[in-house]
Design a protein around this nucleic acid. Sequence first.
RNA 1: GCCAAAGUGGCGGAAUUGGUAGACGCGCACGACUCAAAAUCGUGUUCCUUCGGGAGUGAGGGUUCGAUUCCCUCCUUUGGUACCA
Length: 937
Amino acid sequence: MADYSKEEIKRIEEKWQQRWREQQVYKTKTDPSKPKYYVLDMFPYPSGAGLHVGHPLGYISTDIVARFKRIKGFNVLHPMGYDAFGLPAEQYAIEHGVHPAISTANNIEVFRNQLDRIGFCYDWSREVRTCDPKYYKWTQWIFLQLFDSWFDRSKQKAERIKDLISIFEKEGNINHRLPNPPTGRTGPKSKIQNFGPSEWKKLSEREKEEILMEYRLAYLAYTDVNWCEALGTVLANDEVINGLSYRGGHPVVKKQMRQWSLRITEYAERLLKGLNEVDFSESMKDIQRNWIGRSEGAKIDFKIKSEKSTVSSMTVFTTRPDTIFGVDFMVVAPEHEMVKEITAAGHQKEVGEYLRYVESRSEVDRMAEVKKITGAFTGAYAVNPFNNREVPIWISEYVLAGYGTGAIMGVPCGDDRDHRFAKHFSIPITNIIGEHYNGEEANPTYDATLSNSDFLDGIKMKDAMQVVIEKLVALGIGEKQVNYKMRDAGWSRQRYWGEPFPVVFKDDMPYAMEEKELPLELPDTNEFKSSGSGEGPLANLKEWINIGPNEKRDSNTMPTHAGAAWYFLRYMDPHNEKEFASREALDYWNQVDVYVGGSEHAVAHLLYARLWIKVLHDLGYLNFDEPFKKLINQGKITGDSRFVYRIRGTHKFVSHGIKDQYETDALHVDVNIVDGFELDTEEFKKWKPDFENAEFILEDGKYICGSAIEKMSKSYFNVINPDKIIESYGADTLRMYEMFLGPIEQSKPWNTSGIDGVYKFFRKLWNLMHDASGEINISDEAPSKDELKVLHKTIKKVEQDINNFSFNTSVSEFMICVNELSSLKCNKRQILEPLVIALSPFAPHITEELWEKLGHKESILNAMYPMVEEKYLVESSYEYPISINGKVRAKMNFALDMPKEDMQKLVLASDTVQKWTEGKDPKKVIIVPGKIVNVVL
RNA sequence: GCCAAAGUGGCGGAAUUGGUAGACGCGCACGACUCAAAAUCGUGUUCCUUCGGGAGUGAGGGUUCGAUUCCCUCCUUUGGUACCA
């Protein structure tokens, strides 16, 4: 009757997918009687290209885990949704006039169909779309929580703004000074820095708001944006590559705009420490640590000697206070506000010219010439506090205004950049590290013993650090300081297709909208081009923007990170209209137990999500402050492209091996008309009208294509659609094969050459349970010891592999199992039933079918994962490899509980050992129980 | 430049509290079935070999009875980051 044929596979998969849908078997409920498990995929951006075989790689792994945990007795939350706001839909709208809402909905439809065909067990009743007003109402609401909070440094947590106001009323800001101004920010800011309670009370409403803005976790400030004149728009950092726009390659310049930012820098330390609590790969943690960029050092005040006395001192940040006596000059960032104050009359011209030069430099120039040494002397001097030595103050663009204090002390013998600077401008170099400095290049060692260093002479640099810091503190001219590279997160986008900011500007100051007014819906429009002045498309909608005399909305929208920063909470309670999720659901589902997605989101998405969860936790909405317990980064599946070589100016195509004899152009050719490397020349002629009259120069009668591993992309014609694989092999084979390809975290090219092996595995399993005529054929006989051993060995290993996310080896275990059962000709129910259950997470369709054939009425999802019975696995004896001087020469079987002395005697008496030792007594015999016996001569 | 990960047959890859390297799959070779081919099934498959054995996990060194696994130096590849003091 039924063979495991293409037709049968199709019938089985359609049958079960339909049944799952009808019976809603994947619907999940909050059920405190069961332990919970939350398995999450990074939700996709629904692009127009649909799914390719690379997308499901991570989804298959989570699907296996979700199904596995479910049959292990967990209540599993395994949802899916769409990161539906974003630039491509907007770009598509500009080019084709299709509203982003429509194209996005269409794309989601395509995605959903493709996902369903792979047999995923998502609870679709919990689907979220970030562009749905019912969803982004809460994105806006959380944004307002950030707006309404500040970071209390003494408690290291977020608090409400109203608490800050009452602190100000009682004691001013003496205990809560202004946070460091956001790096890179130069625009106007609150003029009042420090104040007492009476001063606070005297301030106007507006002045109070300005000060509060300096504390809010979501705040408005003038910050640099990447302005692209040619595109008439602002670009995100990742849309700028080497100073040029990602689309079109136009020059990009910095431009100041008043924008929203998130004060993520206040959370730098907690974001860093939190990494110790979560199970992310070390390299992932390193990338985040790197990004946060913590560095310990000191800030040191230097007195200034200049013509004008308006500025009497400057502060530098250094990680090497131990090198204080090696300071030969100071460098200040050109943008630093003290520059014009200290510049001597005689140096005005030189400094002015240099400032103009710096201003003229575009990002591209700076990127291209990082090693170029430039600078100007201000004519002012700084005084070393320890030896009163006067050193010149320079300005140079290698010192960044946005990091530390925007000023450094130059120690040429210890720092490479300082050294090159000193050499270039002929500044004399002081050597404080003796022979460690060769006069040619700087040596950033920590190991040298200091000399020329006054009270530090003879002290190791490592130890001098502490000595200097103590002295600085004692003198009141410096202290220990920690700096972070991380910047506050720019949160405004000059775009249409995103969440509007839920604020109203009155007199240019933003005020939060009330919760009952949310969501602030994105207005409908047909005009998606930016307004040209650097504002987003919403600025064109005057009626929407201007809501009253002197009352305006924000024309910007939030970045896509906003919706993605908390979506995993919404899945817990997706239809709640009163809260972003109920406390009950949040407490029950809690952290995401395992989160799977691409490493391209390692920095931005993960940091923002971690930030939002920490803030919500601080404000009392959550009882956990890290969202993801475990993170797996699945590798990308790359495409394996094929090329044909056209002889220039002709329609002749030459085979790869002989192409060098001609002048040719390589053209991508659709991988679907190439068999391995051999081109189907007839199909090629039909592929595109241009090639209708193609002629071929063959080698050995074949046209051989060239190849390259590239990103899977439509334009390279190397995209493999999963539907195509499902068409010929079925979803179960696709799933198993993608898992079998290699470790989930590794990137690899797609290659179908091994897929037959997986298909054969299913057929063998099928044949095990069916007779020659295709009828189910199961025996109720009691299984043998061998059969039980094979089964239990397999389920034990597979269980371990799933827990380790090592799916490629679990597929191998199943193959070994079926091979062994085939050679035992085992068709016994007591073996095959547990095996089918264990296989069900990997191959849900065929296992449901077999499960039904085994006489079960309920879905296999309700089965229990088989218990491993160790008694079938324990061995009483073991065949020991006998190695002589490290080389295995023989094998001998011993009971595992045999005393070592007895084993040693038997080993030494054996023929093989006698032969190799030639009668001599060995030096020693090492016996590792259950492992190996080694005889050392 | 800096940080991290990786380097194993013809190919994808297995094996690490140090214990028989190459599991499993692909490919290839041979055999069975067939008039024949395909499909299927079975056997073999790291390399060299005078058939005793020898070499072998990027290269070189070290620790060890024993190293793919630990340590040092170097090479290559991939990812991250970059004038961050």
